[in-house]
Design a protein around this nucleic acid. Structure first.
Lengths: 189, 189
DNA sequence: CATAGCATGTAAATTGTTACATGATTCA
DNA sequence: TGAATCATGTAACAATTTACATGCTATG
């Protein structure tokens, strides 16, 4: 039941529809949790049934009718309890790392190509998160914002996302360099 | 079916029992994939049934009988195919980040404590991965090892694990500093 | 003599992924 | 006119987690 709390945390910023949340929890943006649209619609239904969020229909002129949700008092309480309880440790699970683990036994060409793609994706996210951070702090310096801002949660998680993607990018580039030079050494001329 | 390939990749280093793999895929060590013992025993059974690994019984004098597995030719082929296919993008899913996202609405004391715990765990892993890396490269410098070593896959994934945990530790410490100063500012005297 | 480590699993419940389904509007 | 965006779901399947289960040996 962790998605549940991720959704509650996202709804602290205001009212959102399932569709809007789906964009926030998308691979391209999600800086603290990833989830698919289907999961979100299902979770929103459950959360509403349990009274942790409440939704209202918004009929639009040109667009389909949507439902905007916000956190209820019960929802806030649930979040408090969740935050107070011990956090589960984090762990690594990454396809690409599995492939690199097997690097000495497989075709390096395909692997290097995938590392390149991952590096590009990571670099794009670094850009994106940088822009998001600048947008959140506005005119203030980071120090000022973190001292005085009134909604720093998203900023802090975005900082982690940024560092994570920088790490991804740097490691991919380093690994590409290592594997490329070995590829040339073993299959020269 | 990603655990399957993670297990195959792990078995490239030699023969291992389910129990030994369980230690390698444990929270405290896993540098490229995390899995629980139950998952591993189940996956080993499937892999053997599919002919991708083969096991032999080893009767021990004082310890329970164990089964050691190694990758078959079919298993190697499977790994090749997996590595050649496009990798799934990686994503973030972390309880602690969800809690920080909600930082402006919850009790900071408990949150800061959890960030401290996570920082300590991350610092311990930084130590561990550093030791593992030194052990793998032996007398050689990192550059030399990565150029000439004959099993660099595990080294490269361990490098990523190290950087990841450094990122974790640094971010936790920074976040603790930010939240602590705000806690004092909002509830002073 | 209790705890930790060795060694392997089964079963049920929860979560997450993949595929399918619909229908209107805006933009190139 | 075809693709992308808005908007919401259902159903089947795969993966993961949690709880349960056993039994022997070494160590403090």
């Amino acid at each position: 039941m962790a998605l549940r709390h991720a959704v509650l945390a996202a709804l602290l910023d205001g009212e959102f529809s399932g569709y809007q949340l789906a964009k926030a929890f998308d691979l391209g943006v999600a800086n603290y949790w990833y989830a698919q649209p289907q999961q979100l619609y299902a979770e929103l239904t459950r959360l509403e049934k349990d009274g942790l969020i409440a939704g209202r229909e918004v009929v639009q002129a040109t667009r389909p009718t949507k439902r905007l949700f916000h956190v209820t008092d019960a929802g806030l309480e649930e979040l408090e309890e969740f935050t107070a309880a011990a956090a589960k440790p984090s762990f690594i699970r990454d396809d690409l790392l599995v492939k690199v683990q097997a690097a000495d036994h497989v075709d390096l060409g395909a692997l290097i190509a995938q590392l390149g793609e991952r590096a590009a994706v990571a670099a794009a996210k670094v850009e994106l998160f940088g822009t998001l951070l600048r947008g959140m702090r506005g005119e203030r310096t980071e120090e000022e914002f973190l001292r005085q801002g009134d909604r720093i949660g998203p900023y802090l998680t975005c900082m982690r996302g940024l560092a994570f993607e920088q790490g991804n990018r740097d490691w991919c580039e380093r690994t590409i360099a290592v594997l490329t030079s070995r590829q040339q050494a073993h299959a020269p001329n």
